[in-house]
């Protein structure tokens, strides 16, 4: 983690350590570049405005040096433009300050796991739910589910992030490329429709709501 704000750094590092990560923290851009290019990490949390060397330059330098470690950029510059700039520089995800730890955690999990499994799959599964990506068909307990294209897209995202927490903003940004939802209820509407088709009439629900955090598709409640 490259972050010069000691309070944010402590808050994030403490949270990550509690969830089982090992965290190394440097407050300076140049030190961050050195550390990231000299040892191997699962993910990098990079602040944008840093002393020594700014975060975007560090990201660009790392990518230029073929360091492919997933990078989550943190920034207080939350405008539409800044996100695009951050991702163009080579960041994998962008999170605006202030943020909740659960949001950060979900995104880091996403980055780390995405890196782990990158095989080309044609069928995605969760318990008795099965998605055939080639035929674009979905079955639950062998019975076909009639999904609209947008519901298919949403479920595919959940299946690719099986057992992981997915936040509303992650869905907005990554499924619909929509920056923020000042009205907050759109995603809930989509989820409740998907859930109706997915879980209604089946004994065991698969799509779970985590209060104040987001959603998770999982066999376990």
């Amino acid at each position: 983690m490259v972050e010069d704000d000691a309070e944010v750094a402590d808050y994030v590092a403490k949270g990550l350590r509690e969830t089982g990560y090992t965290v190394e923290h440097v407050p300076d851009g140049r030190d961050g570049l050195y550390l990231a290019s000299s040892s191997s990490f699962d993910a990098i949390v990079m602040d944008r405005m840093l002393p020594g060397m700014d975060g975007l330059s560090v990201v660009k330098a790392l990518r230029a040096a073929s360091v492919e470690t997933p990078i989550l950029i943190l920034s207080a510059l939350g405008q539409l433009d800044e996100r695009v700039v951050g991702l163009r520089a080579g960041g994998d995800d962008y999170l605006t300050k202030p943020f909740g730890f659960s949001e950060l955690h979900a995104r880091i999990e996403n980055l780390v796991r995405r890196r782990a499994g990158r095989s080309v799959e044609t069928v995605l599964r969760c318990a008795d739910l099965e998605m055939d990506l080639l035929a674009r068909k979905v079955f639950r307990a062998g019975k076909p589910l009639d999904l609209l294209p947008r519901e298919f897209k949403l479920l595919e995202y959940f299946l690719r992030h099986k057992d992981r927490v997915v936040t509303r903003t992650m869905l907005l940004e990554q499924v619909w490329d929509y920056r923020f939802d000042p009205h907050t209820s759109i995603i809930d509407t989509h989820i409740s429709r998907l859930r109706k088709k997915l879980d209604e009439g089946f004994e065991r629900p698969l799509l779970h709501t985590l209060r104040g955090v987001g959603y998770r598709l999982s066999e376990q409640p």
Binding site: G78, Q79, L80, D81, V84, V85, T96, P98, F180, P182
Partner: peptide, 22 residues
């Protein structure tokens, strides 16, 4: 409130033409 602030900044950038490069 954060969304409001964010929207304000987006408006400001769009109005001053700073977003043009994007």
């Amino acid at each position: 409130t954060l969304n409001t602030l964010s929207a304000m900044l987006d408006i400001a950038r769009a109005e001053t033409g700073l977003s043009r490069e994007m």
